[in-house]
Computed example of a mutant assay.
Amino acid sequence: MSFILAMMAGMIIGGAAVAYRLSRRWQQQVKEAEKNLQEIAEQHQQEVAAAREMKQKAADLQFQLNQARNELRALQHKPED
């Protein structure tokens, strides 16, 4: 009878140890996943900012191009003195 109780106690202690280890591993994986998600979010914000800057540069260049075209048309249609 004591052998059976010892076996059951060993199984309970072993199960608890395995559960504790798996819990710790799971918590570590959750922390790593949160860290990775944070890095991805930061990278996304940087990409959004870079895209915003590129759009602004494109708009500035388009404006300059339109001004240059207008100046060229004005020079082409200017009556010669």
Rank of each mutant, 00 (worst) to 15 (best):
Q45Y: 06
A19H: 11
E42N: 08
I40M: 03
N36W: 10
A19K: 12
V48A: 10
R25I: 11
H44K: 14
V30W: 04
V48Q: 13
R21I: 02
I40D: 05
A33V: 05
N36S: 15
S23G: 15
Q45E: 15
A41M: 09
K35E: 09
E47Q: 14
L22M: 09
V30Q: 06
Q45S: 12
E42I: 00
W26S: 09
Y20G: 03
R21M: 10
Q27T: 01
Q27C: 01
A19D: 11
W26N: 08
W26D: 10
N36P: 02
L37D: 14
L22N: 14
R25D: 05
Q43M: 13
I40C: 01
Q27M: 01
E34Y: 01
N36V: 08
A19R: 08
E47R: 12
Q43P: 01
E32W: 01
R24W: 05
E39P: 08
L37M: 12
Q38H: 06
A33N: 14
R25S: 06
Y20N: 05
H44E: 14
A33C: 06
R21D: 03
Q28K: 09
K35H: 11
E39C: 01
A41Y: 01
N36D: 15
Q45L: 13
W26Y: 13
K31C: 04
Q46S: 11
K31N: 12
L37G: 10
Q45H: 11
R24D: 06
R21H: 12
K31Y: 06
Q27P: 00
E39Q: 15
R25Y: 04
Q43F: 11
Q29M: 08
E42V: 02
N36H: 13
E34K: 06
Q27L: 07
E47S: 07
K31M: 07
A19M: 03
W26F: 13
L22F: 13
A41K: 06
